[in-house]
Write a protein that binds this DNA or RNA. Structure first.
Length: 292
DNA sequence: ACAGGATCCTGGGGGC
DNA sequence: TGCCCCCAGGATCCTG
């Protein structure tokens, strides 16, 4: 479930492997993407130099020579992996999939960049020109990065909606990069119940929630790095993965703060995990004692 | 306009 | 052991 921290880690790992490399060859996998790249992407990609690898929300952007931009969304199960050239897909954990494949890396590197997406929720799109790229994000209404979230904007967006806090956090137009996991984690961090409407949140609490988002994302990005590195290398996203979460996926288990069993409910069509004791209302209780 | 729901897709987990 | 059912999720489209 790649959200901002996972995507950021993938980007950081890919950057030194890809920047400056030329796409010597491009190959497509057997199964088509649900959302196609573009008509003649193979011809367009071939020979391009990867100039930058960056992230915008949950989107990965590969800036290529000639003002070409490859935008990848990992969806749920998407992976961008660099492997040795010629390594059969079947050898790659966690399992063999012959999905889409774009193979850059020049002969010297003898490496390949592969995009695999088991459940095909991901996408890869090619944009010609910065303007076209910008238009894509603008049309999607993609909101600001959490780290540069303007408090005034944030409070205003909360004030303007009757949707529950969980739904607001998931809305990429309000803030980009938060998914189901970190929405729950941020609400726990802020000690707020996920159900109250945004417009019931006092300004001070709104600020608190905004900071909680950043705290949670930063913590995850720091801690997940080593785990994800293995993941990128192709050894799977398991082990130590679950332990990072305070509430997500911990239904029935004791709250790490107070011991009350974590509960689960359904909000905005998503399963939502929270501590019924620590997260009673939108107005958080006492500031959480800083643990380390 | 806004909010909520359905949709896509397929491996994995739970239940029997 | 095996099979079936349903669940998980991000973005997008549809409905009320």
């Amino acid at each position: 479930v790649p959200e901002l921290p996972e995507v950021e880690t993938v980007v950081r790992d890919l950057r030194p492997l890809l920047v400056g490399r030329r796409l010597a060859a491009v190959r497509r996998g057997d199964k088509a993407l649900r959302r196609p790249w573009c008509a003649d992407w193979e011809a367009l990609l071939r020979g391009r130099v990867i100039q930058a690898v960056r992230r915008r929300g949950k989107w990965i952007v590969l800036d290529l020579s000639g003002d070409l931009h490859l935008v990848v969304h990992l969806g749920m199960t998407g992976q961008l992996i660099v492997t040795d050239a010629g390594e059969p897909l079947g050898d790659l954990p966690p399992r063999a999939f012959d999905r889409e494949e774009v193979a850059p890396g020049g002969k010297a590197a003898a490496r390949q960049l592969r995009f695999r997406d088991v459940r095909r929720f991901g996408s890869a799109t090619l944009f010609e020109g910065t303007a076209q790229l910008g238009e894509f994000f603008r049309a999607a209404g993609l909101g600001p990065e959490p780290f540069t979230l303007d408090p005034v904007w944030w409070r205003r967006r909360l004030k303007a909606t009757r949707r529950c806090l969980k739904a607001v956090l998931l809305d990429q137009r309000v803030v980009a990069g938060v998914g189901n996991i970190y929405a729950d984690e941020a609400l726990f961090e802020a000690q707020m119940h996920p159900a109250p409407p945004g417009n019931t949140l006092p300004s001070a609490a709104a600020n608190q929630l905004g900071m909680a988002i950043v705290t949670v994302l930063n913590r995850a990005t720091r801690k997940r790095g080593p785990t994800i590195r293995n993941y990128v290398g192709g050894s799977g996203l398991r082990g130590g993965y679950q332990e990072e979460f305070r509430v997500y996926g911990r239904t029935g288990q004791p709250c790490l703060r107070c011991g009350t069993p974590i509960e689960r409910l359904r909000l905005a069509g998503r399963s939502t995990h929270y501590c019924p004791s620590c997260q009673r209302s939108a107005v958080s209780g006492q500031p959480k004692a800083d643990r380390r």
